[in-house]
Design a binder for these strands. Structure first.
Lengths: 141, 141
DNA sequence: GTCTCTGCAAAAACTTTGCAAAGTG
DNA sequence: CACTTTGCAAAGTTTTTGCAGAGAC
């Protein structure tokens, strides 16, 4: 794995502890945190971190293609360091948001039999429903 | 087409001019307006309409399944009276949001060869890219 | 040393809430 | 008439902005 500092430098960003912290957190997390969650998590190890910096940092990352913004219909946006297009699942019971790795549901626009009257740059598929854990818990109740 | 008043009554809602106006606007619009746009449009014909009422009304409609909330990553939510699951296109040039009628991109989770470890209730597919009009304008420039 | 980034606080944007007056059935 | 809905204003959330001091290169 490439060093976070090097990735940032290659993108033309100055390397700061705050940026490294945000990017590392996103790389090593599967929960798709929102800005507030990122801030609260990093506060412990980066006492001077501010929420405004998290927002500014995420905005830089987003425009440089280092992270993907994900909006599942909550008040706030979530962020994902997996930047290739891939579907997400949202559990309407526990609220968890997960990456879904499924070839049949990926790159859908490239598999069409007829071209669309729309030039697709990227696609976002969100499946709403019940995650395995919540379904199991319900059956046992 | 069923009368809007009757639809509301069947859902157990009191029929008010505000609710009829909001629902009719969504039924006859293809632009997927947000609350602010709905409010500004209806202000002309319903002078006493308030933005809070638009929000409350949309919330009722959403929970009763009369409208669908759509979040394409702007600050605000858009609304669609087409409540069956269907894909949407978002033009990153002009910002227009359109319904896409394409069987290959509809009910995707029902067409999987293997079941997922997730019980899908509904799906939302958003294609980001360039709409036909913007592509044409660009080629002519 | 230059130029960018951070952190704070204030502001902006979007949405929700409480309550009195008005409207619906 | 009983009960819900509206409209207003105020508050709550989430995100953005401006600017002085700190930090990266």
């Amino acid at each position: 794995m490439k060093e976070t500092a090097q990735v940032l430098r290659e993108k033309g960003l100055k390397v700061t502890p705050q940026r490294i912290a945000v990017y590392n957190m996103l790389l090593h997390s599967t929960e798709h945190p929102n800005a507030e969650t990122i801030y609260r998590t990093l506060e412990a190890t980066n006492p001077t971190m501010s929420l405004a910096t998290v927002y500014k940092t995420l905005d830089f990352f987003k425009h440089l293609g280092l992270v993907q913004e994900l909006n599942v219909g909550e008040g706030s946006a979530r962020y994902d360091a997996q930047v290739h297009c891939h579907p997400h699942t949202v559990c309407t019971v526990c609220g968890c948001v997960s990456d879904l790795y499924n070839d049949e549901l990926t790159d859908l626009h490239k598999k069409l039999s007829k071209p669309l009257d729309f030039e697709v740059a990227c696609e976002q598929l969100i499946l709403y429903g019940k995650c395995a854990a919540c379904k199991k818990a319900e059956e046992e109740a």
